[in-house]
Design a protein around this nucleic acid. Structure first.
Lengths: 126, 126
DNA sequence: CTCTATGCAAAAACTTTGCAGGGAT
DNA sequence: ATCCCTGCAAAGTTTTTGCATAGAG
């Protein structure tokens, strides 16, 4: 709870119970989550979820990206890392290795690598 | 036209006129395109476009990724390159610099870097 | 004749919006 | 009293599917 408060420091976000609930789920998770992933654990309407997660993004405490399953995945911005998205099974993996990409004048927020994951590669080669 | 035929060599793709039309547009383009980008130039129904572009993807001659404008962007697979997607203006830029990411056991098909592009950064700093 | 491709319309999937009611300050 | 948050329902957007027809070999 203390850490949830820390997240919204220096933002225009008022902590309602819906917002705390959302942020707690994401704070606990080790990987990006879609609305579908967590809807069973949320007592709020989907509109409330989407409105709040968008606000979190505007206030720069949450990141999002589209996977190839058409869903949007969200995560709290903490240590910068990359994501691997499997175009076969749609699984998302966080990659701790930092990419050395640097683009002067740009701000890099997220790196998504699309491809075929290890287990799907194995199946293909069998 | 010769190069269009070359694209479907060693695939199960029969060249219909709809397919030639789609491939010609993508062969000419220097950047990924969504259905919306090209629908005015297509004489076919959207179902035909989507069914065919999916077939191209299955046959590995086309790549796709989701931008943050909710649309899917397609391109013909040629020289491997990365894409920068601006989360502010949704513009897509192709980056010639290759990333040095390597993941043993994985197959990397595409790298998408999300962030804020140069021109949007400029506006922010004004 | 058979098999695949196409157009049209409808459906599907995910996300957003309008509006009215509720809570907090 | 005001302002923002929320739920519900409806709408919006992009992509996919069903079905009947058309076309190629």
């Amino acid at each position: 709870m203390k850490n949830i408060e820390a997240l919204v420091l220096n933002t225009n976000i008022k902590l309602t119970s819906a917002r705390v609930a959302i942020l707690e789920i994401f704070a606990k998770s080790t990987k990006p989550l879609s609305y579908e992933d967590i809807k069973e654990n949320l007592l709020m309407d989907k509109a409330t979820f989407y409105r709040n997660i968008s606000k979190f993004e505007e206030e720069n405490i949450v990141n999002s990206f589209e996977s190839n399953d058409k869903k949007r995945y969200f995560e709290i911005k903490k240590n910068a890392h990359s994501h691997f998205v499997c175009s076969t099974c749609s699984k998302i993996e966080c990659l701790s290795e930092k990419s050395n990409i640097s683009l002067p004048g740009y701000k890099i927020e997220n790196v998504i690598i699309k491809g075929i994951c290890q287990s799907c590669m194995k199946e293909i080669n069998d």
